[in-house]
């Protein structure tokens, strides 16, 4: 596979490590979250058959975490974003 890195251009997927669903960005605040909420965050997945937003880490490269939108049916990559930008857009900050 090829991941079109937003900063570096197309890179072989072998340079990356995949973590999983990009919902892992949405970590609840541990002081206010219930165990149930933290459980759902850590353990439950939509696991869609279709477009899937997922976290890839450019370990053999610039160490960016990316959010890759990719079809789990065809492997087509639809979008690649810097995870940091996605996180900020989702309201994460400090």
């Amino acid at each position: 596979m090829i991941i079109d890195h937003p900063l570096l251009g197309p890179r072989d997927a072998a340079e990356f490590v995949v973590l999983g669903d990009a919902s892992l960005i949405d970590r609840p605040d541990g002081m206010t979250a219930t165990v149930e909420e933290m459980h759902d965050y850590a353990y439950l997945r939509d696991n869609p058959a279709g477009d899937h937003r997922e976290l890839w880490y450019h370990e053999q490269g610039d160490r960016s975490w990316l959010v890759v939108t990719r079809s789990t049916l065809t492997h087509e990559v639809i979008k690649v974003e810097l995870a940091r930008n996605v996180a900020r857009a989702q309201g994460r900050s400090r």
Partner: peptide, 18 residues
């Protein structure tokens, strides 16, 4: 292999990835 897809038809989210 398709557990999440089948379970989703019943409104369930599972602790599973394919």
């Amino acid at each position: 292999g398709s557990s999440s897809r089948v379970a989703a038809l019943a409104g369930l989210r599972l602790p599973i990835e394919s």
